[in-house]
Nucleic acid binder design. Structure first.
Lengths: 238, 238
DNA sequence: GGTATCTAATGGTCCAACCATTACTATCAT
DNA sequence: ATGATAGTAATGGTTGGACCATTAGATACC
């Protein structure tokens, strides 16, 4: 019913004023805030208090702070990084298992593929095919290029997510990929046979997207993630 | 290829040490950190620097700070609040539309329903039916109880998510619901006919879950969210 | 014309003091 | 005894001032 009474913490007021200016567009991405010693005068607070406010804004991803002359706080706008970061923290804290991640990802990538198949335009397809061909090259160039292959493979997944034009799909997938990479890297497939299979999946998936066959795209994507995850699970047991 | 070189900002080091202790479980929810004047000695930093670190941790939702004797920093653990908050910022900044939310939710709830149908046990079904019956009562009691109906409806959705036993589904759905409620509350359906329809959807959905018919559950859930979202979109235009 | 050095502005850190809030305690009136 | 009241001390919140570290631009030098 009621919210907690407003805490009269000075720095919080400073945070709100600046945040509001950014969210409402009075401050635009790239704009530079006055120097700390100026701002402290304008807000009539001490420098320490002002700095606590800036720390909070930085943590929210709204500003970026650089040192040196001509340094200072520049406005970053609002991006998806914070969603990814907080989701990542949640994953680590809740000790979300590889299996949980995989299960979620199967559904997510399926939905993404289905939507992408409906919305892909020529430009999307050009970029996807370029990535696909790059991945194929890396695969053909032998074991030394397998890391590049895996990186490119991830880029393909991300590009497909971008094709949905929906920032939610993009940032959630980003966060998931990042977390899998960071915490389960050692289980990633380093097996040539499997990588070839993965590559074949991608070829088929992109073909389905090009044909705007959304249910087929969903099916392929789900099967792809499922196989990939099963392999990782097997690695883990070893 | 390379990540940005580690910035030698003292407060950042303090943040990482405390955050690591929390995430790895050395510090548990409810634990109290030493007083600022103690901590500053342990980390060998000034009080100002320490406070910047605490501000960041507070912003991340990892600790809560209370004033007064016996006050101090207490560990909060990691919840979905931060994910919700950063998502909320994106919504306000107009990077995520109601349509984006709806689209994402259709996929998510479909996957959740399908999984829930596979995993629901007797206990889950008992709870779901209890909620369902409560929702039916609220609906029958007239307009004064419509808010209760909506609340109960959300609880049903959440309970279904819990039935998946996967914290990712639960957290993401929670975060989504919270944001829809907060930023699009005025578009929520207040129409009796529609609410009855929603309730019917729930009856069917839970029946499908009980029958462990996962694809049918998915279909119903998707259709349900789709209709619900379409109504909200229409309200918005009005 | 290029290179090295200096300069000044800016963020980062530290210190010491005092204010504001609040759980606990001692006191006092009933 | 008991309940209200005032005092006390610990804790976070804020302030002002000083100095350090970093860096873009100006200057001097070769």
């Amino acid at each position: 019913m009621f919210r907690q009474a407003k805490q009269s913490r000075v720095y919080q007021d400073v945070v709100e004023q600046i945040q509001e200016a950014i969210v409402t567009g009075k401050l635009k991405t790239g704009d530079q805030l006055p120097a700390e010693r100026d701002l402290k005068e304008r807000f009539q607070v001490s420098r320490g208090t002002l700095r606590e406010a800036l720390r909070v804004l930085e943590q929210k991803g709204l500003i970026e702070i650089r040192t040196g002359v001509a340094g200072g706080s520049i406005v970053k706008g609002v991006g998806t990084e914070q969603v990814s970061a907080s989701l990542g923290l949640l994953i680590r804290y809740k000790k979300v298992s590889l299996q949980n991640l995989a299960e979620f990802r199967i559904g997510l990538e399926g939905d993404i593929a289905a939507l992408a198949a409906r919305r892909a335009d020529t430009e999307d397809l050009v970029k996807l095919k370029a990535l696909l061909s790059a991945a194929g090259d890396h695969l053909a160039n032998g074991p030394d290029h397998w890391d590049s292959f895996i990186t490119t493979d991830e880029q393909i997944h991300l590009k497909i997510a971008e094709t949905t034009r929906n920032p939610l799909f993009i940032s959630v997938l980003e966060s998931l990929s990042w977390n899998i990479h960071t915490y389960y890297e050692s289980f990633l497939p380093k097996d040539e046979e499997l990588m070839k299979e993965n590559h074949q999946d991608m070829v088929q998936l992109i073909a389905a997207i090009e044909a705007h066959d959304s249910e087929e795209a969903r099916r392929i994507a789900r099967e792809h993630v499922r196989r990939f995850s099963a392999y990782m699970e097997k690695q883990k047991v070893k």
